[in-house]
Amino acid sequence: MNHHFVSMGTVVSLSGDLPERATSAVENAFADLDERFSLYRPESEASAIARGDLPLTRASQEMRGAYELAQSWRVATEGAFTPQRPDGVLDLSGVVKAMAIERAGTVLDEFGATHWSVNAGGDVLTRSAGDAAPWVIGIVDPSDRDALLTQCRLGPDARAVATSGIAERGEHIWRIGADDTFAQVSVVAPDIITADVLATAILAGGRHCLELACRTWSIEVIAVTRSGSIFATDAFRTTRPATR
């Protein structure tokens, strides 16, 4: 079964075994977070903080929780991931979508779903039933978004994949040469928040952050530079080192 809806400026696709009424509960989970955290809604709590009308210390527990989460990731990634926009405005959208996906997953679990996927704008969390085939997720080729660069399999130990890229911002100019800043980074992780945050952090922090992330977390990564070079951990490679 398949269901999709619009939230947070993108489209959320649900598939797998989806119990009746579970889909509307998932929609509500997304809507609740969007209502509080959207900077596009003038009436949201996040907008009140951005305007300076509401100090963070007096914000809701949910807002402060998201802020703490984002700050802890900022420290863990040595600043590569940050909840602050360049203009200084607090922007928690980097964790809020992942929080919504995670919450959607909890809702599906609570409704008794055993095999499902939630895909919000290209960030995917899955639950695999023991006997079912693992979820196979295609990863978009940043140089041709109608094609797939590669794929990954998600199972109980690696339930999530998230991709960050510059393609959507119209910066897909492929330069010839040694430009090794990343154009697209995909991270497979045990949970969606780790996957999403680290994909963003590596895109922003480059090779240094890539090294840090690979050494610190149990993740698989495939990153494509603006000049088209590919950096990939073993799960994405056909060739493995001779001796391990």
């Binding site: 619009v6 400026g9 993108t10 489209v11 696709s13 598939s15 979508k97 996927s117 895909n119 704008g121 290209g122 960030d123 995917v124 899955t126 979820w135 196979v136 997720i137 295609g138 990863i139 978009v140 940043p142 978004r145 797939l148 660069l149 590669t150 794929q151 990954c152 994949v161 998230a162 991709t163 960050s164 890229g165 510059i166 393609a167 959507e168 697209q184 995909s186 495939i222 590919i230 990939a232 799960a235 994405f236 490679r237 056909t238």
Partner: peptide
């Protein structure tokens, strides 16, 4: 890099698309 087998792919991960 492992090629995608579109017959198996159930979802696509990419940079966030707009609505």
């Amino acid at each position: 890099v492992i090629a995608a087998d579109s017959a198996d792919v159930s979802n696509v991960s990419g940079a966030t698309y707009t609505t």
